[in-house]
Simulated scan of single mutants.
Amino acid sequence: MDAIYLDDLAFYAFHGVFDEESRLGQRFVVDLVCWLDLGPASREDAYALTVDYGTITEAVGRVVTQSRFKLIERLAGAIAEAVFATDARIEKVKVRVHKPGAPIPIASGRVSVEIVRDRPA
């Protein structure tokens, strides 16, 4: 199946279990893979035959910045739901949420969660 990749979408938001995370916020980075049939767009070079990257990016941004979740697992799930809502042609999505400022007891590192979802029937 064909895929569209949107990588390194960075947002400032207020997700997390700890009070400081909800109060101070931090940066979150989202990577997406959207699977769909790109055959028509690859043959005909017509904008209407593909999905709008901007619409997907805006939908992700709304979820990340206008919602609050304790878990990045739930954030990833909400992003997947929003991506499916943007365009019925998207058959499958992979969402990776990076939380570079996760409160872990080491000097450097990054926590990420990745989910893969098929369009609900």
Rank of each mutant, 00 (worst) to 15 (best):
A121P: 08
R89E: 04
P105K: 04
S42P: 05
V30W: 14
Y5M: 13
C34G: 01
A13N: 05
P103K: 13
A46T: 08
D52H: 13
P103C: 14
A48G: 15
E20F: 15
G61P: 14
Y47L: 15
A121C: 05
K99Y: 08
I104T: 09
E44L: 12
V95L: 14
R119W: 01
S42T: 12
A78M: 13
E81V: 00
G25C: 03
F69C: 15
V95W: 15
R43Q: 14
L75T: 05
L9D: 09
W35Q: 07
D45K: 04
R27G: 01
F84S: 11
F69L: 12
R74T: 10
V95T: 14
S67K: 08
D31S: 01
L36M: 14
D31G: 00
S112I: 02
Q66V: 04
A88Y: 00
F69D: 07
A80P: 06
T86V: 11
R119Y: 00
Y53F: 07
P105I: 06
P40K: 02
W35L: 01
S108Y: 14
D87P: 09
S108M: 13
Y53K: 03
A59V: 02
P120M: 03
P103N: 13
G101N: 06
V113H: 01
V51N: 11
F84Q: 11
L24Y: 01
E58M: 11
G39T: 15
F18Q: 12
L49Y: 08
F11C: 10
E73W: 02
K70W: 00
F11W: 12
L36E: 09
R74G: 00
D7A: 07
F69A: 11
C34V: 00
V93F: 02
E73F: 01
A85R: 13
A78Q: 15
S112M: 05
L75A: 07
T55L: 10
V51L: 15
A46K: 14
E73P: 01
D118N: 11
V93I: 05
R62Y: 01
L71P: 13
D8N: 15
R89M: 04
G54N: 11
L75G: 05
P120D: 08
I104Y: 10
L36T: 10
P100V: 14
T50M: 10
A46F: 02
R43G: 09
G54Y: 10
R23S: 13
L49W: 07
L71F: 14
L32A: 06
G61C: 11
G77T: 02
G77E: 14
I115K: 02
I72H: 03
P103M: 11
R119T: 01
L71D: 12
V116A: 07
S67R: 12
S67C: 07
S112Q: 06
G54F: 11
T50N: 12
T50V: 11
I104C: 08
I115Y: 03
F14M: 02
L75M: 10
V93S: 02
V93M: 04
L24E: 08
I72D: 04
A107E: 15
M1P: 15
L9T: 06
R68I: 08
K94V: 09
G54W: 12
A3Q: 13
F14E: 02
I90M: 00
K99W: 07
V64P: 10
G77C: 05
E73Q: 05
L9K: 05
A10H: 09
I104P: 05
D2M: 06
R43W: 06
P100T: 14
S22H: 15
P105W: 04
R43Y: 08
A76S: 09
L6K: 04
I72C: 02
G39R: 12
